[in-house]
Amino acid sequence: MIIGVPKEIKNNENRVAVTPAGVYALVKAGHKVLVEKTAGLGSGITDEEYRSAGAAMLEKSSEVFREADLIVKVKEPLESEYELFKDGQALFTYLHLAPNRPLTEALLRKEITGIAYETVQTADGALPLLVPMSEVAGRMAVQIGANLLQKYNGGCGVLLGGVPGVPPADVVIVGGGIVGTNAAKMAVGMGARVTVLDINASRLAYLDDIFSGRIATLYYNEFNMMTIIRQADLLVGAVLVAGAKAPKVVSEAMVRTMKPGSVIVDVAIDQGGSIETVDRVTTHDHPCFERHGVIHYSVANMPGAVPRTSTYALTGATLPYLLQLANLGPERALLEDHSLLSGLNTYRANLTCAPVAEALGKEYVSPERLLVSFKQAS
């Protein structure tokens, strides 16, 4: 199989989808890997390192898309890339289709086999290709929030950990999953007072156990959210419903009650955002806006700011699945691995991810039903 690795073009996106180790493994398995020149530079990987691992380097992304059977990316394709798709091509990347109708329509129109990192799900409910970037984003959320709280950035001038005689800042985290847990780790480590809200009582019990009383846990409901948000210096939105648009768990009325100069970091923005006042996706160039006296940060590719760490964390998780897709071909790999099958969002002009179909008001088609003809033929 010919695997293509184009350079990422999203604003300040310096990650790359395959490292030299991945190239080496794919070439050793008998595949051809095409990498766009300078694709890895943002992550500290040179073209020569790719060549040494066995990759062929191409000048333009259009050449990569034209020649490859399977395109591997980090972030969802942008509009300028839609016209580069080949009919029937396979695509393996973060897609986040629920809030993105134009990309969904483009994938369906070109009959792309679109496999989304964020919906690959194991039998126990884990999301193995979302976890590494959720860990990065969760930790970054607090790091970024602490910086934005500084007065010259428009914040209220609070030091997250306080000092002797002066209390620390209050960090409120909505969602106790991977993002929320990692945000709590950073906030606790920096000395903040931390409260985590979640709807899952067993998850709250788990967090209470692993943090040994160093955080407060609170069951999420509207009343509790209205009460706790008033004391927040930093609010982290960390809510996830796999494949679906993020629910709005913090209303505009709640945001109005926050302290002047407090900060919101909505990590769920790549799925539409979980804070009602976060009504736009920002970029690393212009990451913030102010609403009701509160600083809002809503960059959709947060891990792109730390590409060296993020690239190696992500590709370590994606490579085993990429090898399956290459070695078996997409259809057989999907049939043989149910966790990979759960990642299938589009196939032959059909939407095969129920939460995406629901969010966009489109018909959902079972991927097993679509793949049965392939199974019978083989």
Rank of each mutant, 00 (worst) to 15 (best):
Y219H: 11
G272I: 02
G42H: 03
S61K: 15
T352Q: 02
G213M: 08
E331T: 04
D266F: 12
M133G: 09
G175E: 07
S61G: 10
E252Q: 11
D337E: 15
A53Y: 08
A300F: 00
L344I: 10
A141M: 07
N12G: 01
G88F: 14
V171K: 14
S61V: 04
T19D: 09
G54V: 13
P102M: 13
H96Q: 10
P77D: 09
L334F: 05
T277A: 04
E336V: 01
E135V: 15
A246T: 12
P168N: 11
V250D: 06
E83S: 15
T352C: 05
I144R: 12
K248P: 01
G237E: 12
T113M: 14
R280P: 00
D170T: 14
N350M: 10
H338L: 13
E36M: 05
V249A: 08
P128I: 03
G272S: 03
T318Y: 05
V306G: 05
M254P: 02
T113H: 05
M254A: 00
L314Y: 04
R51T: 13
N14T: 00
I264A: 01
K32Q: 15
K37M: 03
V120W: 06
P77F: 14
I199D: 06
Q271N: 00
L78V: 14
A169F: 13
L370H: 12
V306A: 12
A359Q: 06
M302C: 03
I112V: 15
L341F: 04
V120T: 11
E63H: 06
A238R: 07
L218N: 08
E76N: 04
E49K: 14
L240D: 03
N12A: 14
E222S: 08
L360K: 09
N301T: 06
S202Q: 15
Q271Y: 00
P164E: 12
K248W: 08
T104Q: 08
V241W: 05
N345E: 13
G165M: 02
V120M: 04
G243W: 03
V278Q: 02
G361A: 05
G40N: 08
P260I: 12
I112L: 02
A300H: 01
E290D: 05
N153K: 14
V239H: 05
P99R: 04
T19Q: 11
P99Q: 01
P247T: 11
P132T: 12
A216K: 15
E83W: 02
V158G: 07
A232H: 05
L314N: 02
T181H: 08
L197S: 01
A357R: 04
E135C: 12
G293N: 03
E118R: 07
T38P: 00
G4N: 09
V18E: 10
I115R: 08
A192L: 13
G155N: 08
T277I: 09
Y219V: 10
A244M: 03
N147P: 00
T122M: 12
V241S: 09
G261I: 09
E48H: 00
I178R: 09
G273D: 02
G40H: 07
